[in-house]
Amino acid sequence: GATAVSEWTEYKTADGKTYYYNNRTEESTWEKPQELK
């Protein structure tokens, strides 16, 4: 299949934890999204 550009962006909180934000759905998660595995 075609490689889609991930909708997920990786961010870090002030205390250094990583989370992921989906630009399309406006969803955020602590877990690494399936698309990034």
Rank of each mutant, 00 (worst) to 15 (best):
T25R: 02
E31V: 10
G1I: 13
K37C: 06
P33W: 01
Y20I: 01
W8R: 00
E10Y: 03
T18D: 05
Y20T: 00
A4Y: 08
P33L: 01
Y21G: 03
A14H: 11
W30A: 08
G1F: 13
E10P: 06
L36Q: 05
S6L: 11
N23M: 10
N22Q: 01
E7W: 06
T13G: 11
R24D: 09
Y21K: 09
N22Y: 01
L36P: 04
P33F: 03
A14I: 12
G1M: 13
T25A: 01
E31H: 08
G16H: 03
E31S: 06
Y21S: 03
E35I: 06
S28D: 04
T9P: 00
E35S: 11
S28G: 12
Y11P: 00
E10M: 08
W8N: 00
L36Y: 13
S28I: 15
G16A: 01
G1W: 12
L36E: 08
G1H: 14
V5T: 13
E7P: 07
Y20R: 00
K37W: 15
N23P: 08
T29Q: 10
T18L: 10
T9S: 12
T3L: 12
T18I: 15
Y20K: 00
W8S: 01
E35A: 11
Y21I: 07
A14G: 08
Y19N: 03
T25M: 02
A2G: 14
A14F: 03
Y21W: 08
K17C: 09
E10N: 03
W8D: 00
W8Y: 02
Y19W: 15
W30D: 07
T25E: 03
Y11S: 05
N23A: 11
Y11L: 15
Y21V: 10
Y11N: 05
D15T: 06
W8P: 01
R24F: 15
T13D: 13
G16Q: 03
P33G: 02
T3R: 00
T3H: 14
T9Q: 12
W30K: 05
S28Q: 12
G16V: 00
G1Q: 14
A2F: 12
A2T: 12
E35H: 06
E35T: 06
S6W: 10
E10Q: 07
T18V: 12
L36F: 12
Y19F: 13
D15R: 00
E35M: 05
A4R: 00
N23R: 08
S28V: 15
Y21A: 02
T13K: 03
E27L: 07
E31L: 08
E10F: 03
K37P: 10
K12D: 03
K17S: 06
W30V: 08
P33R: 01
D15F: 04
S28E: 10
E10K: 03
L36D: 08
W30I: 07
Q34W: 13
A14Y: 02
T3K: 02
N23S: 14
D15Y: 06
A4H: 14
N22V: 00
E27G: 03
E27H: 04
E27P: 00
N23L: 09
T29M: 08
K32H: 05
S6N: 13
T3F: 08
Y20N: 00
E31M: 07
Y21P: 03
G1T: 14
T3Q: 15
Q34M: 11
N22P: 01
T9D: 06
E7G: 08
E35G: 10
E7Q: 08
G16S: 01
E27M: 07
E26C: 12
T13V: 02
Q34S: 14
T29N: 04
Q34R: 06
T18K: 06
D15L: 04
P33K: 01
V5E: 13
W8Q: 01
T25K: 03
S6M: 09
K32A: 06
T13A: 07
Y11K: 14
T9K: 11
P33T: 01
T18G: 02
T3W: 10
Y19H: 06
G1A: 14
T3I: 14
N22I: 00
G1L: 14
Y21T: 05
R24V: 15
L36M: 09
E35P: 08
N22T: 00
K32Y: 06
T25I: 02
K32N: 05
R24I: 15
Y21R: 05
T29K: 06
K32W: 04
Y11D: 01
P33N: 03
N23D: 10
E10G: 01
E27N: 04
Y19S: 02
G1Y: 10
T25F: 03
Y19T: 03
T9M: 11
Y20A: 00
T13W: 03
V5S: 12
W8K: 00
E35N: 09
G16K: 00
W30Y: 11
T25S: 05
E27T: 07
Q34A: 15
T13S: 08
E35C: 04
L36A: 04
A4G: 10
N22L: 01
Y20H: 02
Y21L: 05
L36G: 06
W30T: 11
N23K: 10
N22R: 00
A2D: 12
G1K: 03
D15I: 02
G1S: 12
Y19E: 04
K37E: 15
G16W: 00
K32T: 09
A14R: 05
S28F: 15
S28A: 11
E35R: 01
E31T: 10
W30L: 08
S28M: 15
K17V: 10
K17L: 11
A2R: 01
K17H: 09
S6Q: 11
S6K: 09
E35Q: 07
T3P: 14
E10S: 05
K12E: 07
A2K: 04
Q34Y: 11
S6V: 09
A4P: 14
Q34K: 08
K37D: 15
S6E: 11
E35D: 11
V5K: 09
V5Y: 12
K37I: 15
T18F: 09
W30G: 05
R24S: 11
D15E: 09
W8L: 01
E7V: 06
L36I: 08
K37V: 15
W30P: 07
T29S: 10
G16N: 05
D15M: 04
Q34T: 13
V5I: 13
K12V: 15
K37F: 15
Q34V: 12
E7A: 06
K32M: 13
S28K: 15
E10I: 09
T9E: 11
K32I: 10
A4F: 09
N22S: 03
S6P: 12
Y21F: 10
E27Y: 05
E7K: 04
E27W: 02
T3G: 13
A2L: 14
R24W: 13
Y20M: 00
A2I: 13
S6I: 09
E27S: 04
Y20V: 00
S6G: 11
W8G: 01
N23Q: 11
N23W: 14
K37G: 15
E27D: 05
T13Q: 04
S28W: 15
E35W: 06
T18A: 07
D15P: 00
W30R: 04
K17E: 09
L36K: 03
T29D: 04
Y19C: 04
V5L: 15
T25Y: 02
K12H: 12
Y21D: 03
E31W: 06
K32G: 03
Q34G: 11
K32Q: 07
K12A: 07
N22M: 00
G1V: 13
A2V: 13
T3A: 13
K37M: 15
A14W: 09
A14P: 13
A2H: 14
E7M: 06
N22W: 01
V5Q: 14
